[in-house]
Simulated scan of single mutants.
Amino acid sequence: MTLMGIITALIVGLVIGALGRLVVPGRQNIPLWLTLVIGVAAALLGTVIARTMGYADTAGFDWRELVTQVVLAAIGVALVTGFAGRRSVSRY
């Protein structure tokens, strides 16, 4: 993978992660770097799912692939937020 491909993947991952955070209701107390990681993972997994299902290579913009990626990012953000919310520090 070239340097430009890596930079593009990070930008797309950040956008997908941000869209995933917007879909999840409430406040998410997760850092920006974790949103980026979730977004990149969701973008890659969404592309694999779209290719497996046969709708990744369409003419024009792949809306179904984007929706798949955003839904996966929202699930990832919700799961990470849920796990982070369970880890509370006891002050006693």
Rank of each mutant, 00 (worst) to 15 (best):
L3G: 13
L3C: 05
I6R: 01
I6F: 12
I6W: 07
T8V: 13
T8Y: 05
A9G: 06
V12C: 02
V12A: 05
G13D: 11
L14H: 08
V15D: 03
I16F: 06
I16C: 02
I16D: 05
A18Y: 07
A18S: 12
A18F: 03
L19K: 07
L19Q: 11
V23W: 11
V23C: 07
P25L: 14
P25A: 10
P25F: 14
G26N: 10
G26M: 12
R27G: 15
R27C: 09
Q28A: 15
N29P: 12
N29Y: 13
I30F: 13
I30R: 05
I30H: 04
P31N: 14
P31Q: 12
W33E: 10
L34Y: 04
L34A: 14
T35K: 10
I38F: 04
I38S: 03
I38Y: 08
G39V: 09
G39E: 04
V40C: 02
V40G: 12
A41P: 09
A41G: 14
A43K: 01
L44A: 14
L44N: 14
L45Q: 11
L45K: 09
G46N: 11
V48H: 01
R51V: 14
T52F: 06
M53C: 01
G54D: 14
D57K: 02
D57P: 03
T58G: 01
A59M: 06
G60V: 06
G60A: 07
G60F: 07
D62S: 09
W63G: 04
W63P: 00
R64P: 10
R64I: 05
R64M: 13
R64D: 11
R64E: 05
E65M: 12
V67W: 04
T68V: 06
T68D: 00
Q69H: 00
V70D: 05
L72D: 01
A73E: 00
A73T: 03
V77K: 00
A78L: 09
A78K: 01
V80H: 00
V80T: 10
T81S: 07
G82M: 01
G82T: 09
G82Y: 12
G82C: 02
G85S: 08
R87S: 12
R87N: 07
S88N: 06
R91W: 13
Y92T: 15
